[in-house]
Design a protein around this nucleic acid. Structure first.
Lengths: 111, 111
DNA sequence: CCAAACTATATCACGACGCGATCTATCGCA
DNA sequence: TGCGATAGATCGCGTCGTGATATAGTTTGG
């Protein structure tokens, strides 16, 4: 839709994963699965193509920080840019409004 | 993503419009714009192609009920099916969880 | 000790979807 | 009469999600 700066659900999930700390691709996958109790399972095709697009948009970047223990040299770490944090907050705000509207339309309990 | 029965944001907006009463295409457009304070403006390309897909999915159907006043014979009215109401509630619930997660990641005020 | 499962990244092709542009036609109003 | 709003519809382009497939190192259970 013509909603400035809005993100797809996949992209928002990825930004949410990176909101608290840098993570690598596969780690993002597991964080999403864990956070959503296994309800959301992103495939690697979705993940890596979304990462490429997010890099191009400038909302994430490769991170040089790596864990001092349990590292794996194959990993590529990513982190939010300032624009990425702002984009994530904007999308969270939009979704919050959407949920409030759903509640007022009796689509949720305590509406 | 591999999230059973999930809807795109456009589709969810349309189902929300139909949650309280049947509406016609152009009416859905204006309801969305009004409900979101003009932040979301869906084009007719998005609208009518989404309506076709929602009809095919069986979540909306053409409605025979028409307003007794201020009608316009050009209009085509739509309403939610039982499956459509369930789908809208499911999506609202998923989005609510997503917003709660965003809040716990400090992406929203009062998090 | 070896196979299977897991970790990790990456690409491809297909289909679904968003979206602006464009078209046709009617309606309400000045 | 003429113009803007209402109303529905389609087209093509570009974006995106997705499963399949490939490659390869690591861990773990039997």
């Amino acid at each position: 839709m013509a909603t400035e700066g809005s993100l797809t659900t996949s992209m928002f999930h990825i930004l949410m994963s990176l909101a608290d700390r840098p993570r690598h691709g596969y780690g993002i996958l597991r964080e999403i699965e864990g956070r959503t109790d296994g309800e959301v399972r992103m495939g690697t095709g979705t993940l890596y193509s979304a990462i490429r697009r997010l890099l191009n948009k400038g909302v994430i970047r490769e991170s040089s920080s790596r864990p001092d223990t349990d590292d794996d040299e194959r990993r590529v770490y990513y982190e939010l840019t300032d624009e990425g944090l702002a984009a994530a907050r904007g999308e969270a705000r939009r979704l919050g409004l959407l949920v409030a509207q759903a509640r007022s339309k009796q689509l949720l309990p305590r509406g």
